[in-house]
Design a protein around this nucleic acid. Structure first.
Lengths: 237, 237
DNA sequence: AGAAGTCAAGAGCAGTGTTCTCGAAGTGAG
DNA sequence: CTCACTTCGAGAACACTGCTCTTGACTTCT
């Protein structure tokens, strides 16, 4: 019954992370100051070390939260675009949830450039994000999209064996099959290959967009991104 | 005739930048320490301020150098793959220089992850790179590739008016025409659109590759990147 | 040779992450 | 209720950081 102490501890841990997040949004990850965080929370710097092992530990927590928030946004969008289970109103695009997810993927990045940069940008120097954490969290978006593609194809009655990716490089085909079985993806290798390709293109576009490197190339990223996504979805039918 | 002094000044300016570059490779941009640079060069910290206005100024110099080195690598590759002017030995792929440039684009990133991250990754917090510098330097790679595409098409005798991009979004078509005339690109809008698309895809792939986010998705990035480039080049013929 | 400009050096300021110690507070067993 | 035990917050201290300012020596030009 470690109620009082444990409860206080949980509360303060959260408050510290919130303050760190607020500061992250203001000054960026590299300028994140433990002293400023401590001041905001109302604790001494040393007291802060009771809750996080150090600056790196705090950064890791922020990174994980960024990944989770991003995946949450994508998940919400995908689920929101999923057709009714009742079966009616199913004459729309079978891949609409995928499109919604990809648009949300970009939107979250544009609306949260700092966490996005922390998660997908240059690693903060002197700080190596724990690989398992980033892989785990980063894979969530991929899983969501693959699942949405699979559901969409199932609804349109696509043959499971169709497009096994016979034109694929054999080694890549083998890798994709392994990836599918490892993560429980229900897609034939050919479709999975094009889904991965689409994901890479989308991520690349979003990275350039969020980091401001797209401006000379596009006067209207919204329009060009939508076209890019639609082109990619066309290859998945 | 400020020879002696000016010469010393130029030398020391270079040596400082070299030391900063060396330190950048070791500890990353955010941890770049003026004191350590000064120690390496053999000057005091305050003396360092005679040559660079501060940390930001030094970072900018490193950023510009990174962009230039990257574009140099691409340029070398493109020129190295250009066919002889004598006209013989011209039975190869007309777009081989483009391919060589794109492969070099990625190779440089993989071999110089830290400068690549400084140039294309998350902006260093508290430090805003001068927009004109980054745009100017960043545009060089784009210019190189567009020029290589134009030369390749000219060699294969493509009609200048061919593929004006009639299927393009009118607004995007107008923007591309403006971009072409502004930067002197000799490509019809349709081809330019697909060149830009290819560049975005390539950059996105390279970013994920260099930052280590591609690993779960590809067991052999070399192979997948080559396939991606070839697919893109096919759309440019 | 003397005036003007440039330079390196050092001290100092305000800030950083991290470690340590010390006394107060909460916790659970007897 | 008491007592050992753990946890906690605070403060001081250490070794750093970027940056500013002053001082005295050096180079260049008139």
């Amino acid at each position: 019954m470690a109620t009082l102490r444990a409860q206080r501890r949980a509360e303060l841990t959260d408050r510290i992370l919130d303050a760190a997040q607020a500061q992250l949004l203001e000054v960026g990850p590299a300028a994140l100051s433990l002293r400023a965080v401590a001041r905001d929370v109302g604790v001494t710097v040393s007291g802060l070390y009771r809750y996080y092992a150090g600056r790196d530990d705090l950064l890791t927590a922020l990174l994980v939260r960024a990944f989770d928030d991003h995946a949450d946004a994508v998940q919400d969008a995908v689920e929101g675009a999923e057709p009714d289970l009742s079966g009616q109103d199913d004459d729309g695009d079978r891949l609409a949830p995928v499109r919604a997810g990809l648009l949300a993927y970009r939107r979250w990045g544009l609306e949260n450039p700092t966490p996005f940069g922390l998660a997908y940008g240059t690693p903060v120097p002197g700080y190596a994000a724990p690989a398992d954490e980033t892989v785990r969290a980063g894979a969530r978006c991929g899983d969501l999209l693959v699942a949405a593609v699979a559901r969409g194809r199932a609804r349109s009655g696509a043959a499971a064996g169709h497009d096994g990716g016979d034109d694929l490089d054999p080694a890549r085909r083998a890798h994709l099959k392994a990836l599918a079985s490892r993560r429980g993806y229900d897609l034939p290798p050919g479709v999975l290959a094009r889904t991965v390709d689409l994901f890479v293109v989308v991520h690349g576009f979003v990275v350039m967009d969020v980091f401001g490197q797209l401006r000379p190339l596009s006067d209207n990223p919204d329009r060009d991104f939508a076209a890019l996504v639609d082109r990619g979805l066309d290859t998945l039918r």
